[in-house]
Amino acid sequence: MRILPSGERALLIEVDGPTAVHALARALAQVAGVIDVVPAARTVLLTCAPEALDGVRSLAADLTPEEVSAADTGEEVVIDVHYDGEDLDGVARMTGLSTTEVIARHTGATYTADFLGFAPGFAYLSGLDPALHVPRLDTPRTSVPAGAVAIAGDRAAVYPRSSPGGWRLLGHTDAVLFDPEADPPALLQAGTRVRFREVG
């Protein structure tokens, strides 16, 4: 673990991988003086009240390897999907699978939200079946509808709201991924386990 500086109010803590990131983020989110926690692929950014920065730095430095590699206990969320996406047939052609088989492989995996970014509530999910690894669109769509269920590279995701996007669309969900009135506002947090279930 390395603790790197990030200005007068933040620290960037570098660890080995997603499991340690999620354990560290959970361990430090509740510490007094910590205002914001940003888990990413191999780092956790902690933003603190300025007077709390030194205390949080010592506390992080004293964490044992066991504490930052604790078993992941993220909760599981099931997302119901209508597999009617514009790119479903195209993904089937690219992968040599039938659309039924694409859906079976997409619903057959358990995903982990590694981190959020791009837009509020947008979680990058790992765990996609290697048979479904397809590149992004050459030309991104100017507007992807809210709730679009998509894949690109080795990742899956759900668009929380309408935005431009280059991922391939398999279907859509009525689930609300981002709700400013909810606590926390994002349905998926770093470490959350995700499964997709086919409906209607």
Partner: peptide, 11 residues
Amino acid sequence: RAGHASSGVPV
């Protein structure tokens, strides 16, 4: 709106 970065929300 500090405090919601873990949900992908800028400050």
